[in-house]
Amino acid sequence: MNDKNKFQSKTYLSCDTICKADSNNGILGDVHTTEFINGIRASGVPNHVLILKVGSPIMLLRNIDHTMGLCNGTRLVVSRLAEHVVEAKIMTGTHVGKKVLIARMSMTPSDPRFPFKFQRKQFPIMLSYAMTINKIQGQTLTHVGLLLKKPVFVHGQLYVAASRVTNPKGLKIVICDENGQDSNSTINVVYKKIFNNL
């Protein structure tokens, strides 16, 4: 998708370090090289290499300023790329159209699967041509496209996705059956156990 954007791209690299509490252990310093830490991809933390273009849609990964509408999940469009900041225009919400500056910030992943803690200093954004149903909750959009290759897996999930669009004409749904063929119906998953104690 980003290839169709004709603007010149700019690459931003993060600065990754092992947290000081863990760096005292000599073994960690030998095993966890800079290249190893740069290659880690963790949920809620931007990648080491961030390639952006003017006009690319992005999503915030951190709460920055609620009063300006800069919250985790806010969607923006890149309007200018500088060395130390990214200028972007807010796409949704009460601050739609407002231009903001986003600076790099230090983030530590909270994933318990990592046996050590590291810090990544990078812009708290990621490219966002599509969003998960969890991230779209609370947003209102003029156009929503749903790709349902499998039946929805949680009761109410289809409702959340379909209810984000402001006008039914802006909703498009592609449904596939178990053979990958187009279909016009899907299974709405309901866990009958939730009705047991009613």
Score class of each variant (00 low, 15 high):
V54E: 12
V189K: 08
G39R: 15
N47P: 10
F123C: 05
I136M: 12
Y12M: 02
S79H: 06
H48T: 07
R113M: 10
D65A: 09
R104W: 05
D177R: 10
I136F: 09
V85A: 07
L101R: 12
K150I: 03
Q8G: 07
K6W: 11
R62K: 15
G69W: 11
F36D: 06
E87K: 12
G170L: 03
A82R: 09
C19L: 14
L141G: 01
K135Q: 10
S56N: 09
G170K: 03
N5F: 01
C71H: 12
S79P: 05
A82H: 11
V45M: 01
E35D: 14
N134A: 09
G39V: 02
L13M: 13
S14M: 04
D30P: 00
T94D: 14
P151M: 13
N184E: 14
I175V: 14
N25W: 02
F153N: 09
S185N: 12
M1N: 11
V45Y: 03
I102E: 07
G97V: 02
K89D: 06
L127Q: 09
V77H: 08
I187V: 13
M107P: 00
L70P: 06
L76R: 00
S185H: 14
I58D: 03
L158C: 14
D177T: 08
V189Q: 06
L146M: 14
T142K: 08
I64L: 13
R164Y: 14
K53G: 08
N63G: 00
L70D: 05
G44M: 07
L147D: 13
I187R: 12
L147Q: 09
N25K: 10
S185F: 13
K172N: 09
I133V: 15
L198M: 09
L158G: 12
I51S: 01
D22Q: 01
I175R: 14
M1I: 02
L127H: 04
G73Q: 10
V165D: 11
S106W: 04
N47Y: 04
C176P: 00
A42G: 08
I102M: 05
L61G: 05
N2I: 06
S163H: 07
N25A: 03
Y12W: 07
Q8C: 08
V100R: 01
T92M: 01
S43F: 07
R164T: 06
P124L: 08
T166P: 00
K6I: 14
F114T: 06
L171M: 12
L52R: 01
Q139N: 02
K10N: 09
N72I: 04
I37L: 10
F36M: 13
S23I: 05
D22H: 06
L171Y: 07
K149Y: 11
T166M: 03
K98V: 11
